[in-house]
Each structure stands twice: as structure tokens, then as C-alpha cells.
Design a protein around this nucleic acid. Structure first.
Length: 886
RNA sequence: GGGCAGUUAGCUCAGUUGGUAGAGCGCCGCCCUUACAAGGCGGAUGUCGGGUGUUCAAGUCACCCACUGCCCACCA
């Protein structure tokens, strides 16, 4: 129902109302049987412990734009929301909260601890979901999922067992990245490498037989010396050739180890001799395997020295480093110490230095699953922007098997059991009653849980009910597009590709759109410690959700990071306000529904102009969104609303609205344009557009969120008349410019003389006398092909038409002289460029004819304008000499 | 070491097939013109990082260089 809008837009009340409306009506809950092309997106599930940050806001805004636009296009849209259990992160949060009570997870025990996590989730897990609602995301709340839901857990177990039976998942002893604080293995990509200052020590290993000077190795980690089982040199290194095959003594411990040769050694680095510690370095692990060395573990899973380390047994590794250096120095074998910059791995969850650690772990044979994921792009799945293609390929081409077991308690427990009687390993979806090998009933389940990304990898189909054959899967798998940040291309996207293809036979998405990271105004990553975070909820509170959404959309240019600052959001709030006020103006004249009329034949140049431009905007916004050019869509809307609709059209129809005979067309075109504009803007700014839509008169009740995209009206495309309108606008601007530059107040009405270049212009200008008078604020208009300009007058040329404003004594005439000189200068410069081109024979001969023609026309126009202004300048100068004006 | 981006107005950034350099913010001037001062009207500002090449024509295509940022690998 039509109603008045309050003077100022109050986002808070409006947003609350629409949020509740969208949620309670369930209008974003699709039925698989609904008509329309299937369109599905799964949310990148935020961590259940997480709080909404600006990155989520960007991600969810872009997805929401896609979904709302798809609905407008008549598609059957499913957007599944949900959260991720985030194993290590969540466990850390709970452990911190336990610590405040003086408890640890060990003091609590596994079962009680997991219960506590669930209780925590039930109490706080909805926070992030509520925050998603604050953004206006049009998700289907009836289908919200959690990665540890029963259904999803079933899917995880099924996948695990099937992969195991296919030989694509195995258990093995291997050197893995170990976080001694989180007390778990980490996958390769969960380790963050950072350059860090360290020290390189030179340590002498004496030969076993006591001969010679021994061999000096360089090491940054002397605490691993007790675990050394070889010294390695390059086979072609002459310095050490005579030592190969002999035996050396490990400092302090005195254990004898062989001196071996391997081309892995870099002769240039350090001393060219390398100590080999197979249990505590991944490269040494490989050397140990190839040279069949001993494997001695001297640091345990908690970072303490083991009994194997002899005198250092039981002390922390950091302390061991100090002690062993002192001991080596005392023995006279510490031969040097120098600073070194080297990269050190840190746990991506807690930042503890990661230790290579040998242990029994479960691995997914990613090496075997990678090829299919690689081949799917770009044929079956498109990647936007394409620049990520190489990165994606490179990662898959160099992939190593994926360590999926984690030694924590919060997560999917590994469905593997060991028979305590015979040692048989049983991998099944449910706990076996008895050992299939010996019939024993004492079976111990594996203590480990799965990497969080294991369940995330199944998200596109597990959320739709797999392994059951649901209607959802039939209707919406594969999903249409995945919209996510590029930072989880490997963690998540590539693994979903592998799992989706393997288990569903089809990649999980038709397209992947990777958006940028949101950074601060200086381009730094936002982080709490830097104190440069922009909290989306605070922004919504201050400026309204639509302003923030529009800002994020307008800055989402493909392949570029977004530098965000609060001022930008504040700036776009003005845009929301502009729309609001334009609507208020429209409503003043649209208290009742205007009478419909065929728009293709509506009279009035300005109506035809705005309808023509509207067609252009409709096409451009649609195209931009189809291609994920969000910023282009936003910019197009911005320009249309502000520069065309508000700046010109609303001003142009003001006279119409006062006149009985003309208000019919004006009201209907105004109504149509505003309504279609609201549809275009709605995906980006759902709240304010919905509110205005509801206030406008309408032939039928209905939500804007369910309004179809406006169909094209080819009959309204009128390029010629649009250009005519813009010519008239040019004349108005020329008068305004003259006034502004000569310090004549805009409201001061001046007489105007027009000398059109041809009859067409004459007709056009005659027909638009009223428009000219009102918008340029004129006192009178004199018109004629060869009208004479008074000497004391200011002039300009628009499309060959002379625009003359006679001046009188009160204005500063020297100002006009300067203005003319500036204009003539500009024209002359342009003219030189054009004439240079036209003088070039090659240009005439080789350039496309229409280009040459365009340049010729331009030359004529410039020549005409230049001549006119030059003449005017002379006359004006003489007027000045005669005594300073009329 | 390998790869990928970026370098355009004071700032932040657009510039889809090569064909007259744009927006927002900021700045300057004039205005309360009955939707909007969170506004209106007008204005100034750029050898498009440097170089070479292709072309009648290059911000746009190719190659080289410089600087910045990111990713991957390695770092005893």
C-alpha cells in the first residue's frame, strides 16, 4: 500500500522488520519440485566458534547478491547455511575456558570434555548464524547444517571406509608436522612458514678412530644432535671425499655413525657437511630411508627430550639446546656461531613452532585423487578469475598424500578398531561386535579424530543428505557456483573437487569464484593484534547494512584485494540516502497507482531518454552479475540512479507533474523506472529497496525479493532520441558553466541567445524551451540560425550550436576573456591531435573507414567551435576597449 | 629459486574486443532551486612505473627492467 516514508532513512528499524519477515515467511526455502532452473550455493561454513568479521561480510554479501539475482531470473534457488566444527580451533577455545576454572581436558577426561564442547556449541554456536542474519543473507534456514550433525557424520564414516577399501586411504608411520602445544599432527598446508632470525652453529664430529681433524657440520638445531645417525656430504665434494665410508662420533653421546654421500647436500651451504637426524627432519627422514639409517627419536610429542638423548633425558628441547651447546663447547668441538635468517614452521592455529615428528598417522592418497580434480577445471568447472588456474594446477601437480588424523578429541572419531587379541585392524562404519579375524570381542577404537577439512571436503553433497539419495541431491547437485576467498583454495576447494568427483561422479560446482581478501586502508591484513579490524556489525549499526553491502560489492573487482576503510562505507551511505530521498519525491506524486500506458510510444524526449537508459542499465547489470563482475553491476546502478535518474530525470519531470495534461505520462514513467531500478538494486541493497517497494503503489501485493527481473523492452531503445536529449542537456550545462565561471549566482535568471547549427537543432531546442528555461534558469530565449551576438556576451559552442549569454555591467568581463582563452586553448590542442592524425596517409589508408569518418567529423566540429569562439573573443576584446561592457 | 598480481588525478580504485583518459572521496568557487546540505551547480588536477617492439593508432597487445604485495618450494 502506498504510504509516506519518513524524512530520514532509519536502517535499524527497517532492517529488523525485513529480517524477521524473510525468516518467518520461509520465502527462501525452496522445494525441489518448484519450477525453474536449479541454482544452488553452499555457504563456506564459518567456524562455530567464530565471530562475524569483514571477510564473512564480503563473502556472504556476494553470495547473497548471486542468490537474489538468480531468484529474480526465475531460478529455483537453494542456499544452504551452516557451520564447521573446526576441530583444533574449537578445542583450543574450550581448553582456554577450562583453564579459567583451573581444569585441563586431561583432568576432565575425553568423554566429559567432548560433552562440554557440545554444550558450548549448543549455547554459543548460534551466534555466528545470528550474525549471518544481520547481513540479510537469503539463506534457507530450514536446511542449516553443522559438520558434526548425525547425517554429516554418517557421510564422513562412509567416505572413510570406502576410501580405505579402495586403497585410497591408509595408515602409516611417517614424519609429520607436529604441534606440541595442540599435541597433534598437522597437514602440510596447516603449517605457516615465516622468516626468522636464528643461529647456525658449526660443530665438529670427531672421527671414530680418533684420526685427523674430524668433520665439521653446520646446524640450526643442536638439540637434535643426539638423534643423529649419519653425517652426509656431497659425493663430488673433494674436501670430504676421503671421509666417505668412515665413521664419526656424535658429540657428547659418542655414538658412532657413518659418513655417507648424497647429492641432496648443498656444497655451498654452511660447511658442506650435514648431520642427519631422520626422526626430526623431513629431508633427513628421506635420507634415512634411502641409506637405510637408524631412526632415533630424541624429542617426544610434548617437546621433551627422550631417554635416547642420554644426559638430556627429560628436559625440554629448548633447555637441551643450551646445555648441549655448553657441553660441546667444553669438549672444544663448537667451532663457530653465526646469525642466519631461515624460515620456521608455525602452527596455523596457535603459532607454536612446529616440530617434525615421527608417528603413526592416517593418510588420504591425494596423489591418486588429484588428477581428476585437475582435469575438471576449466572444462567441467569454470574458475574465476582465471589467474588462479596455474596456482591450482601447480598445487595439484605437486601434491603429497594428505595426513588426515589429528591427535585431538573434538572431531569425527576415526572409524577404525584394533583387535586386542590378534592385532587385526578393522575399518567399518559402525563398531564391529567381534574381530572378523579371530572372533575376539575386545576391540579398541583408534584414538584419533579426522582433520576438520575432511568433513568440509564433503560439504557440497553431505549437506544435501548424501549418502541417502535425496531429492535435494537430484535437483541441486552439482551446485551452481562456489563463492569463497582464495586463501582456502587448497584447504577446501581442491579437496571438495577431489571428493565430489570421486563420490558423486561429478565436480561439486559448475563454477568457482574466488574473491579477494579485505585489507585495511594501508593494505595490511586485518587482525585483532594490529587493531585495524573493521567490525561489520559495528558498520551495520553505524551506517546501515545496505551501505556496507554496497561498499563491499562496489569494491569487489575480480582478482584484487579490497582496501577498506570506514570512510568508504560512510560515503556509500549517502548513496542509500539518495535513493531514499528520490523515492520520497516520487511518492509525493504517486499516492495512487498511475494509469498504465504503452511505454514504447510514450511522448516526450526526456521520457524516451530515461527509458532508453534504463534498458541499458538492465542489460548491463544482468550481464555483469552473470560474469561475477560485481563492481560493474554496482557502478552501473550508482550512475543510473544518481547521474541520470536524480540529476536529470527528476528535474525534467517537475514541470510535467504540475500540469494536468502531462502528469499522466510522467507519473507512469517515473513509477516504472523507479520500480525497475529497485529490482536492479535489490540484490545489493535488499533492505532499503524492499522498504521503498512496499511503499510504492502496486497493481498487486508482493515482496520485492520475489519480483522477477524486469524483461527487456526493445521498443524503448531509442539511441537517436537519447542523443538529442543529451544535446539539450549539453546546452543547459553550457549556460550553467558560463554562470559559474563568471560568478553569476545560479539562481540569477539570464537571457539566452541560441544559434543552432541546423534545422534539426532548431526544432529540438524550440520543443524544449521550457526545459531550458527551468533547468538553466533563464529569463528569455532568443533563437535563430544567424542570430547576432552582442559584443559584450559570453558564449560557448555545443555540437555546433552557439550558446550566447549577453552580459551587462555588473559582471566581471575580464573573467569571460580568460574563460574564452582557456576554451580556445583546449579546442586548439584537440584539433592539433585530430589534424595530425588526418594528415597521416597511413591512417587514411589503413584505419577502419568509420574511424576515419569519425575523425573527419570531429575535425569539422572542432574547427567550427574554434572559429566561433575566436570571433567572439575578438568582438569581446573590442567591447572591453570601448569601455568595459554594455 | 618458481609462480601470480599490482604500478592510471592528492587518496582509493574503474577502464570487456587497440580508436578522443573516468568514478568516488578530498580540494576550490557559487548556491538553502518546494526529494535530498548525507544536498545542488560548476571547476582544477594525469608525459596511464620505466624502456623496447608490433601497429596508421597502445593505459589496452608482446618482450625486458624497476619497485610493491601475495602464494608455493627450499633453507643443515
Amino acid at each position: 500500500m502506498p504510504q509516506n516514508l519518513p524524512k530520514g532513512y532509519e536502517p535499524r528499524d527497517v532492517e529488523t522488520r525485513w529480517r524477521e519477515h524473510w525468516e518467518t515467511t520461509g520465502m527462501f526455502t525452496p522445494d525441489p519440485d518448484d519450477p525453474g532452473e536449479a541454482y544452488a550455493i553452499v555457504i563456506p561454513p564459518p567456524n562455530v566458534t567464530g565471530l562475524l568479521h569483514i571477510g564473512h561480510a564480503l563473502n556472504l554479501t556476494l553470495i547473497d547478491v548471486c542468490c537474489r539475482h538468480a531468484r529474480q531470473k526465475g531460478k529455483n534457488v537453494l542456499w544452504i547455511p551452516g557451520t564447521d566444527h573446526a576441530g583444533i580451533a574449537t578445542q583450543n577455545v574450550l581448553e582456554r575456558s577450562l583453564a579459567k576454572e583451573g581444569l585441563t581436558r586431561h583432568s576432565l577426561g575425553r568423554e566429559a570434555f567432548v560433552e562440554r564442547v557440545w554444550a558450548w556449541r549448543d549455547e554459543y554456536g548460534h551466534r555466528i548464524l545470528d550474525q549471518i542474519k544481520a547481513l540479510g543473507a537469503s539463506v534457507d534456514w530450514s536446511r542449516v547444517r553443522f559438520t558434526m550433525d548425525e547425517g554429516l557424520s554418517t557421510a564422513v564414516r562412509k567416505v572413510f571406509v570406502q576410501l580405505y577399501k579402495e586403497g585410497l586411504l591408509y595408515r602409516g608411520n611417517y614424519i609429520v608436522n607436529w604441534c606440541s602445544r595442540c599435541h597433534t599432527a598437522l597437514a602440510d598446508d596447516e603449517v605457516e612458514h615465516r622468516q626468522q632470525a636464528g643461529k647456525l652453529w658449526k660443530v665438529r664430529y670427531r672421527l671414530a678412530d680418533g684420526s685427523g681433524e674430524g668433520i665439521v657440520v653446520a646446524t640450526t638445531r643442536p638439540e637434535t644432535i643426539p638423534g643423529d645417525t649419519a653425517v652426509c656430504v656431497h659425493p663430488e665434494d673433494e674436501r670430504y671425499a676421503h671421509l666417505i665410508g668412515r665413521r664419526a662420533k656424535v658429540p657428547v653421546l659418542g655414538r658412532e655413525v657413518p659418513v655417507i654421500a648424497d647429492t641432496y647436500v648443498d656444497r655451498e651451504f654452511g660447511t658442506g657437511a650435514l648431520k642427519v637426524t631422520p626422526c626430526h627432519d623431513p629431508n633427513d627422514w628421506l635420507l634415512g630411508k634411502t641409506h637405510d639409517l637408524e631412526f632415533v627419536q630424541v624429542i617426544d610429542d610434548k617437546g621433551m627430550m627422550t631417554a635416547e638423548s642420554g644426559p638430556y633425558d627429560g628436559i625440554p628441547k629448548e633447555q637441551c639446546r643450551q646445555r648441549i651447546l655448553e657441553d660441546i663447547a667444553a669438549a672444544g668441538d663448537l667451532l663457530g656461531e653465526e646469525p642466519i635468517e631461515h624460515s620456521v614452521g608455525h602452527c596455523y592455529r596457535c603459532d607454536t613452532v612446529v616440530e617434525p615428528h615421527v608417528s603413526v598417522q592416517w593418510f588420504v592418497a591425494a596423489t591418486k585423487l588429484a588428477q581428476a580434480a585437475r582435469d575438471a577445471i576449466p572444462g567441467r568447472t569454470k574458475l574465476y578469475p582465471e589467474t588462479w588456474l596455474k596456482t591450482y594446477y601447480h598445487w595439484l601437480d605437486n601434491i603429497r598424500d594428505w595426513c588426515v588424523s589429528r591427535q585431538i578429541w573434538w572431531g569425527h572419531r576415526i572409524p577404525a578398531w584394533t583387535c586386542e587379541a590378534c592385532g587385526e585392524l578393522v575399518v567399518e562404519e559402525t563398531a564391529p561386535a567381534a574381530c572378523p579375524s579371530c572372533g575376539g570381542t575386545a576391540l579398541a577404537q583408534d584414538e584419533d579424530v579426522l582433520d576438520t577439512w575432511f568433513s568440509s571436503a564433503l560439504w557440497p553433497f553431505s549437506t544435501m543428505g548424501w549418502p541417502e539419495r535425496t531429492k535435494e541431491l537430484a535437483r541441486w547437485y552439482p551446485t551452481t557456483v562456489l563463492v569463497t576467498g582464495f586463501d582456502i583454495l587448497f584447504f577446501w576447494v581442491a579437496r571438495m573437487m577431489m571428493m565430489g568427483i570421486h563420490f558423486m561422479g561429478e565436480p561439486p560446482f559448475r563454477a568457482v569464484y574466488l574473491h579477494a581478501l579485505v585489507r585495511d586502508a594501508e593494505g595490511r591484513k586485518m587482525s585483532k593484534s594490529t587493531g585495524n579490524v573493521i567490525d561489520p556489525l559495528v558498520m551495520i549499526e553505524k551506517y546501515g547494512c545496505d551501505a556496507m553491502r554496497f561498499t563491499l560489492t562496489a569494491f569487489a573487482a575480480m582478482g584484487r584485494d579490497i582496501r577498506l576503510s570506514e570512510e568508504r562505507i560512510e560515503g556509500y551511505r549517502h548513496f542509500v540516502n539518495k535513493l531514499w530521498n528520490a523515492a520520497r519525491f516520487a511518492l509525493m506524486h504517486l499516492e495512487t497507482m498511475p494509469d498504465p500506458m504503452p511505454l514504447e510510444s510514450v511522448e516526450g524526449l526526456h521520457h524516451r531518454w530515461i527509458l532508453h537508459r534504463l534498458e541499458g542499465a538492465k542489460e548491463e547489470v544482468d550481464l555483469a552479475l552473470e560474469e561475477y563482475r560485481f563492481n560493474d553491476a554496482a557502478q552501473c546502478c550508482y550512475k543510473f540512479l544518481w547521474s541520470m535518474f536524480c540529476d536529470w530525470y527528476l528535474e525534467l519531470i517537475k514541470p510535467d507533474l504540475q500540469r494536468e495534461d502531462r502528469q499522466g505520462a510522467a507519473r507512469f514513467v517515473l513509477w516504472t523506472t523507479l520500480r525497475e531500478l529497485l529490482v536492479l538494486l535489490h540484490p545489493i541493497m535488499p533492505f532499503v529497496t524492499s522498504e521503498i517497494w512496499r511503499a510504492l503503489p502496486s497493481p498487486k501485493e508482493g515482496d520485492l525479493a520475489l519480483e522477477p527481473y524486469p524483461p527487456a523492452r526493445p521498443g524503448c531503445l531509442r539511441p537517436k532520441e537519447a542523443a538529442d536529449m543529451e544535446f539539450v542537456q549539453g546546452v543547459i550545462v553550457a549556460v550553467r558553466t558560463i554562470k559559474a565561471e563568471l560568478d553569476i549566482p545560479p539562481s540569477h535568471k539570464v537571457p539566452l541567445l541560441l544559434a543552432p547549427a541546423d534545422d534539426a537543432q532548431t526544432g529540438l531546442l524550440e520543443a524544449n524551451r521550457e526545459t531550458l528555461t527551468v533547468l538553466a534558469r533563464l529569463e528569455s530565449i532568443g533563437m535563430g540560425r544567424d542570430i547576432a551576438a552582442p559584443k559584450a556576451s559570453a558564449s560557448a559552442v555545443v555540437e555546433g550550436c552557439k550558446v550566447i549569454v549577453p552580459l551587462h555591467g555588473s559582471v566581471d568581463l575580464t573573467g569571460e576573456l580568460a574563460r574564452l582563452d582557456k576554451e580556445i586553448g583546449k579546442l586548439t590542442k584537440d584539433l592539433e591531435g585530430v589534424q595530425k592524425k588526418l594528415a597521416n596517409e597511413d591512417f587514411i589508408a589503413k584505419a577502419k573507414p568509420e574511424v576515419v569518418e569519425r575523425e573527419r567529423e570531429r575535425e569539422q566540429k572542432l574547427l567550427g567551435a574554434q572559429a566561433t569562439l575566436k570571433t567572439q573573443r575578438e568582438r569581446f576584446a573590442s567591447a572591453l576597449e570601448e569601455g568595459g561592457g554594455a
